[in-house]
């Protein structure tokens, strides 16, 4: 007889002891569930390599942003002060402040760069979160548990990359098409890119990566020496945003 069965029979019979408190029942249920299929979290370290030279953004392509907005029910508040953004573009000098000089290659100087949460190895946002709503998974994804977010915005203050957005208003009326597979957020909650962890769980890649026709974005496991990301980083020189801060971003830009 499984522990579940015993538990249910116990409840059904109405016989329960004081010590069997709520926590115990949750634990009992947890045993009945399985880790997701595929590799275990332990030997995975998700990262993304972006080749700005391939990006068609200066030609007006917004495929990656549109794809992200669509699958994550990201609201469009119109008012830039209220903007919620998971993935967005920024000129070089703003994306890599201090790294530009008057001789920066023309190719980069005016070229917009695709930015998103860096999923830092040493994430300051995680350290400041008072409820552990933001936490770092073993596979390197800096994850958000929106159920726990109390809207204190410490994480927004801590993030040096401006990767986080706050819902100043109820987002629902501002979402063009509700996707029932993904929750919305509520007023007073912080949100950001999660590397499409819900798609990774289904064995799919991040929505932005799939949407990019130019293949400017490559996603993969850094712990796997044969992965495409590892090969790219080996072959070419890359930079990361604000390396001097010691946050160890997992988004690499090829130069």
């Amino acid at each position: 007889m499984s522990i579940d069965r015993r538990k249910f029979l116990g409840v059904a019979a109405g016989a329960s002891a004081l010590v069997l408190a709520g926590k115990a029942s949750v634990d009992a249920l947890a045993i009945g569930s399985q880790p997701k299929q595929g590799g275990t979290l332990a030997n995975t370290r998700w990262a993304m390599v972006i080749d700005p030279s391939k990006c068609l953004k200066d030609k007006g392509c917004t495929a990656c942003i549109a794809a992200c907005d669509k699958v994550h029910n990201i609201p469009d508040f119109k008012n830039p002060k209220h903007a919620v953004k998971w993935i967005w573009k920024e000129p070089f000098k703003d994306a890599f402040p201090g790294q530009e000089d008057e001789y920066t290659t023309e190719q980069y100087k005016d070229k917009p760069f695709i930015l998103m949460c860096n999923h830092c190895n040493n994430p300051p946002c995680v350290r400041v979160c008072p409820t552990q709503a933001t936490f770092r998974r073993e596979d390197g994804i800096v994850m958000m548990d929106w159920h726990r977010c109390i809207g204190c915005r410490y994480c927004m203050a801590a993030c040096p990359y401006g990767s986080r957005s706050f819902n100043w208003l109820d987002p629902r009326p501002h979402i063009a098409h509700l996707d029932t597979d993904f929750p919305t957020r509520t007023k007073g909650v912080v949100e950001k890119c999660t590397f499409c962890e819900e798609r990774l769980a289904r064995g799919e890649g991040p929505a932005c990566v799939e949407a990019c026709e130019a293949k400017a974005m490559v996603f993969g496991n850094l712990d796997d020496p044969d992965s495409e990301v590892r090969q790219l980083l080996k072959a070419r020189f890359s930079i990361r945003r604000n390396p001097e801060l010691g946050t160890q971003p997992e988004i690499y830009y090829l130069v």
Binding site: A30, Q34, A201
Partner: peptide, 26 residues
């Protein structure tokens, strides 16, 4: 009837925080 909220909360924490996705029922 009495405890579906416990189950849902347990599911929630497993999916979001422990990356467990499937549930083996009784």
């Amino acid at each position: 009837r009495t405890s579906h909220m416990d189950l849902l909360l347990s599911w929630r924490d497993q999916v979001v925080r422990q990356d467990r996705l499937t549930y083996k029922a009784f």
